[in-house]
Write a protein that binds this DNA or RNA. Structure first.
Lengths: 198, 198
DNA sequence: GACTTCTTGACACCGAGTGCCAGAGAGTCA
DNA sequence: TGACTCTCTGGCACTCGGTGTCAAGAAGTC
């Protein structure tokens, strides 16, 4: 039997169902054209209850991103010890691509994310959390710094740049309608930055 | 005499006055605690007119950022031809620091920007415009690419990473309450990324 | 002084998000 | 079985950001 309480299970089920219903509406009508009332009505819950499941409308789409930071942190810790920070980050992001999924749906979701300002803005916020999740492991892989503050700034700059490369590759992948493998684009993006320093 | 029409001049004056009144309110009460009605009342205009001057509340604070992208693009074009893209971008951002300003007020504004999610999100949107403004000049300074799409992705990755470094340095500067010169932090951030590639 | 043009303010409206409160369901104990 | 408690739910009213509309007014032109 599960150790999870009945409350928790039903809540998770409801959460998943609302997410699915809402995503279908988003992909059909567009994110901004879909109101909370639409979602609540389609999911059979009240408007007020919707806001108990999701803090904001954007969280429906970006909810999964919250946990991705911690997962990326764990994946980073699992990389070989000698691997430099930049390479390790690239390899961690490359491993995202290993998870197979509904290609067409993923593409549509990506197009929605890159085409909706409020979604893009919120995803940046989530990426700020990633920074915190990845910080300790990146610190370990960076050359020693004269002081703590310098080390932290270096790590932040490296992580933020890596996420920027991930974003650039993801946008290019989306705009190419998935014709080019994300792996290749990620490699190009991650290689470009050190080479640009001349 | 000025070639600018009377309307254009009065509008610019009103724009500047509303901005100043609003910024004072923001710094006094906080960004989110200040409503549009507060600003309109303090500026002596109607709520409706406010939205004719500024599309959103965030634009009051971030309005100047819109033109900064084009200015950075011009500054980048003025850098020596042989300078690599990453170095040139760093030097352009370093030159921002040359403009002297009210230090204490700038710090307060920075604290507000980094401490207010909606402002931070909007500033990222403005930075997307920077990417477009900087793209052609960065393309010129990057090594030749096998094809157009690869060149564009490389340039985007480099620019996005540079802006990420600028942001990381800016946040560190703000959190240190301006005790460390931004120049130094920018240098540390920009040097860290190529070095992290090992 | 009449006419056009642009701006302003007022009103109504929409959608996101929050506080509050009463009521319904489920678990517990007698 | 009934009473008690705890949590979740739904409804209501409200705030706030943002938009469409429209009539009235100021500025420039003939």
């Amino acid at each position: 039997m599960s150790t999870e309480s009945l409350w928790s299970r039903t809540r998770r089920a409801a959460y998943a169902e609302v997410t699915e219903v809402a995503m279908d509406l988003f992909l059909e009508k567009g994110f901004e054209a879909t109101t909370i009332d639409d979602i609540a009505a389609a999911a059979g819950i009240s408007r007020r209850s919707f806001f108990r499941y999701f803090g904001t409308k954007e969280d429906i789409v970006l909810g999964h991103l919250a946990g991705d930071g911690a997962r990326a942190g764990a994946a980073l810790a699992a990389r070989p010890a000698g691997e430099p920070a930049w390479t390790a980050l690239r390899n961690v992001f490359l491993s995202i691509d290993d998870v197979p999924a509904d290609h067409e749906r993923l593409l549509k979701i990506s197009e929605m994310m890159y085409g909706t300002p409020s979604l893009r803005a919120r995803s940046v916020e989530k990426h700020l959390q990633w920074q915190a999740d990845l910080l300790p492991e990146v610190l370990r892989r960076l050359p020693p710094a004269p002081d703590e503050a310098t080390a932290a700034l270096r790590a932040r700059a490296v992580i933020a740049s890596a996420i920027a490369c991930l974003d650039a590759a993801g946008e290019t992948w989306t705009r190419s309608r998935g014709t080019v493998p994300l792996r290749d684009l990620l490699t190009v993006a991650f290689d470009a930055v050190p080479h640009a320093a001349g």
